[in-house]
């Protein structure tokens, strides 16, 4: 088990060009694809502080994506990524609650119709 611990699986990496400020960062999201890539890109692009956001799948046989963010006014890219992840969580939670409420209501109506 010790060997597995030292070689801890990387989940998130940050890549920056030499001399670039912290507003221009490529995040490497391991074990992710279009599922998170595209939905997160949408959320990050909804942020007016973001000048550019895009992602690419490096190679079909590699399970990671390069997720690029460039911000306006030198705002740290990590902040916009965090906001994107939080916004996506909030939206998903609202969808989940609405869905579960509607399912409950539908089942109740179905039971009433049976009686």
């Amino acid at each position: 088990m010790a060997a597995a611990d030292t070689e801890k699986k990387r989940v998130l990496e940050m890549v920056q060009a030499a001399g670039a400020d912290e507003g221009c960062v490529t995040f490497v999201l391991h074990e992710e694809d279009h599922t998170l890539g595209n939905s997160l890109r949408y959320m990050v692009m909804k942020n007016p502080d973001v000048e550019f956001c895009g992602y690419s799948i490096t190679h079909p046989s590699e399970s990671k994506i390069n997720f690029r963010i460039q911000t306006r006014g030198g705002l740290p890219a990590t902040e916009t990524l965090r906001k994107g992840l939080n916004d996506l969580t909030d939206a998903s939670k609202h969808v989940l609650h609405t869905f579960e409420a509607q399912v409950k209501e539908f089942k109740l109506k179905q039971e009433e119709a049976m009686e």
């Binding site: 998130l12 992710e32 965090r82 992840l85 939080n86 998903s92 939670k93 989940l96």
Partner: peptide, 16 residues
Amino acid sequence: AINVLIAKCQKFLTEL
């Protein structure tokens, strides 16, 4: 499925 997407976001938030 929705919970899986939420979990993905949380995973990267804690990693950040």
